[in-house]
Design a protein around this nucleic acid. Structure first.
Ligand SMILES: [Zn+2]
Ligand SMILES: [Zn+2]
Ligand SMILES: [Zn+2]
Ligand SMILES: [Zn+2]
Lengths: 146, 146
DNA sequence: CTAAAACCTATGACCAACTCACAGGTCAAA
DNA sequence: TTTGACCTGTGAGTTGGTCATAGGTTTTAG
């Protein structure tokens, strides 16, 4: 298979195939006549495996490690389980962060409901933002929450 | 104020001050004697404004636009409200995506509960991943969900 | 007075996972 | 034979900083 054939077979961009090849996830054989890369069914399996792993949240270095372990006839399963649990925790942390951002945004929006638009006077840039109380920021000059 | 003084006053990295300066968010005056940048209280206000805006989800180009509008004595408020609503929608889309990823991961974890670790045999890389049914992937070779 | 510490400058690389543009070589069908 | 589709490698762009490097300046301490 040539690059585009492999890419079409896996439903990815040909540039992704070239990128994964540079990253060492695929191992084509080069045709010395025309300098083309030649991929086989094994590469298609590796590519599909890599895409499936990406959808599960694995990074490219992690996928490369898994493939290398499998190439060495060692079971990647324990590593897969371990990495995966860490990734799940990280995803949940990202979700929490984004939900906190969403909470900040919604509280800002509701506070802005009744505020009129202002014209900058050299003292203020935008009251909407400057007068917004960031719940996650430390208190500053003389402002007390109690 | 010099770079580090401004950075300390705003609680950011001095490199962030230099970066924001290159990006046009801060406008220091250069001392021709030693080539140092000199920031004033206005720059501190702009820097604090930028940081607050970042915590609200604004991008640097958006913040620059807001500052430029304010410099022109035009009210940035309508733009702020508009950009903000789009950003909120985007954040909610990102949350949904991450929650879907989390769902995929948890369903994979529970499916892996009873699966034994396997050794690669040249036909399989890692059964955990390869035999995982991606709910968001289109059906492939002969696999039927019904 | 001098030497070291702490600061300043600009430039460029780095992160993640691709995607795209470019310039030049190869191969198929018309 | 001339298109057109494909291949090659390289380098830039994405986002918001952070860090490294090399060299110049200012402050502080001895
Ligand atoms: Zn496995
Ligand atoms: Zn205050
Ligand atoms: Zn405003
Ligand atoms: Zn199948």
């Amino acid at each position: 298979m040539k690059v585009k054939e492999l890419a079409d077979a896996a439903g990815v961009n040909p540039d992704t195939v070239r990128f994964y090849t540079r990253e060492g996830l695929l191992r084509p054989v080069r045709n010395p006549d025309n300098n083309y890369q030649h991929y086989d069914a094994e590469d298609l399996r590796r590519l599909r495996f890599a895409r499936k792993s990406r959808r599960l949240g694995f990074s490219l270095p992690e996928i490369r490690q898994i493939l290398e372990r499998a190439d060495d006839q060692h079971s990647p399963c324990p590593m897969v389980r371990d990495v995966f649990e860490h990734r799940l925790a990280e995803v949940e942390r990202e979700i929490t962060e984004l939900q906190e951002l969403r909470t900040r945004m919604i509280s800002a929006l509701s506070a802005w409901q009744d505020m009129p638009d202002g014209t900058p006077d050299g003292h203020t840039i935008c009251r909407l933002i400057e007068h917004w109380d960031d719940p996650s920021a430390p208190p500053c000059c003389g402002e007390q929450t109690s």
